[in-house]
Design a protein around this nucleic acid. Structure first.
Lengths: 316, 316
DNA sequence: ATGAAAGCGCTAACAT
DNA sequence: ATGTTAGCGCTTTCAT
């Protein structure tokens, strides 16, 4: 018991005793067993984080911020990859819950009904991220993908663009942004002339191929062509293809991405995009969770971190 | 006890009993507690993976392959980020060992002596990755960074290049590649005319700025300038800056990267690089670990997965 | 095929 | 400030 105190509340032990214990720990190479500790105390100091796919760099800032904030508070991260599938997420959740994490951070708000029930019944602290909903499982930090689409439409119409193409990957949130965008254009009596859909993770190759297909349908004319991409990575590919074809950006072809990932400000020309502060989203999610775990109240359960349309060289 | 059997060795229970138990599990919403299971059985089905920095995409393929292979064998991943610091890694290791993982996968072979001793004394299965050494802690899957530098030098000399610049970030393995490259050039009575060093993670911006500084010291002449980068991301930045300046690649300026990351084949022009199969390295590391955990022998403790120099449009 | 007993290494709660 | 007791929810082992 005294050893346990030295490790967990050292101030409760006389200095002399403490030193004796520490020396013995050193001498014997004792490594505490937190599995037993977790079982006895019913607190694991473990937080599970579920991400669709870690190779999609859009999530890595958020994930890293979460990991760092939690590590600084002496929590560790158990990682799960759902591959954008709610069913896979549900399986993962089963396995994860059996490890009795103190909290869970999810990506998105699209979960199976079984997952939602399990989590609510279980009573673990849950934070959903990267989306907004009226009915969060527990807590939430995110932004509205519909709003992104709508604001993007009115922004680009305001800049005078009239010919639009979209390149998207088939992830559910990207699709919603793209649909909201199309809808908002339609409301202004405009249309997206061509939409190219890819499956899998966003890649440079998709952007290059996507622009090729767009140009096959919509040749360069006097009016600049505005290509809206649901990911910066794809937009980068569009810029690359434009350079390879010698097109003038943004005079003949304009491009806008999504995410404001690290490279966006350094492409050529620099990429206009929708800035999402993934890092502060991660930190906020971790903070919300920690506040709850420390028993404190954590204010409103939903936080909209918003977004910001950034105009750089690739568009007017 | 019967419930435990239904969950862990269902074939040992009569079908009728099994169904009764499963129904009860369903009905009560019972979630097994693997913390208790791990304590009792002394096996956690947890593997810790330590990565320098997950936002460096060079590691994400390996990491994802590890996670997927382990998940398919019913193991879960506990993630640690060392930030390229052996001291931080040592702290992490303390925390991680206290969770009693069944195995640990490390990045690189540069660990503190204390870390090495702890791991050896502890007896967990350990796999080091992304490097080679005579004296692994336990098992290893990687390749030689010195060999990369040397072969790159002889390859480029063989192609007739005579003017060399290097752009590197300050990570230890990249530095070793770069030094081996310089040394090999020196052995052939050639030199690297200019080396630009950056700190932090490799980025497009570094490549652009790096090329700017190189050109300030080594103006474009008749002889093509060969820019060797310790990362594909940097090389991509160099290509971008070259495009922005209207330089002809590979006639005036040639570029070679490292990693063969997803985008390398799709830059403009396509990037020559050193291919590292991060995915198969991850799978191999996970397989080695699983073989050991299943009690089987796992053959030689060191596996050199090698590398491959790939010539695309950015160099001759 | 099922059950009973013991104990994994800790911490909560209660002495002293 | 330190020690004692009981028990966290499983699995191992042995009995039936």
């Amino acid at each position: 018991m005294t050893v346990s105190r030295v490790l967990n509340q050292p101030e409760a032990v006389r200095e002399q005793t403490r030193e004796k214990v520490l020396k013995a720990i050193e001498l014997t190479g004792y490594v505490p067993n937190r599995v037993a500790g977790a079982l006895a105390s019913n607190r694991s100091r473990l937080v599970a984080v579920i991400v669709p796919m870690l190779t999609n760099p859009i999530f890595s800032d958020t994930f890293q911020a979460i990991t760092e904030r939690l590590a600084s508070a002496n929590y560790q991260v158990l990682l799960g990859m759902s591959g954008y599938e709610a069913a896979r997420e549900q399986e993962l959740l089963e396995v994860i819950l059996s490890r009795r994490p103190d909290g869970i951070i999810l990506t998105g708000t699209l979960h199976t009904e079984a997952s939602r029930q399990r989590l609510r019944a279980n009573g673990v602290a849950v934070v959903e991220t990267w989306d907004l909903t009226d009915d969060p499982i527990d807590m939430l930090v995110g932004f509205s993908h519909e709003q992104v689409g709508e604001q993007l439409a009115s922004h680009l119409l305001g800049r005078g663009y009239q010919r639009f193409a979209v390149v998207q990957v088939g992830d559910p949130r990207g699709s919603r942004r793209s649909e909201a965008f199309s809808q908002a254009l339609a409301d202004a009596n405009m249309t997206v002339a061509y939409t190219e859909r890819f499956s899998g993770l966003p890649s440079l190759a998709q952007g290059r191929e996507g622009l090729g297909r767009i140009l096959a349908h919509m040749p360069i004319g006097e009016q600049p062509l505005m290509v809206v991409c649901t990911s910066d990575t794809i937009a980068h590919g569009v810029l690359t293809e434009a350079a390879a074809r010698g097109l003038k950006v943004p005079e003949q072809l304009a491009v806008i991405g999504f995410g404001d990932m690290g490279f966006a400000a350094h492409t050529w020309p620099a990429l206009s995009t929708v800035r999402i502060d993934g890092q502060s989203m991660g930190t906020a999610a971790a903070n919300l969770l920690l506040a709850r775990l420390n028993g404190g109240d954590c204010g409103p359960a939903c936080r909209d971190i918003g977004f910001q349309i950034i105009t750089r060289g690739s568009s007017l």
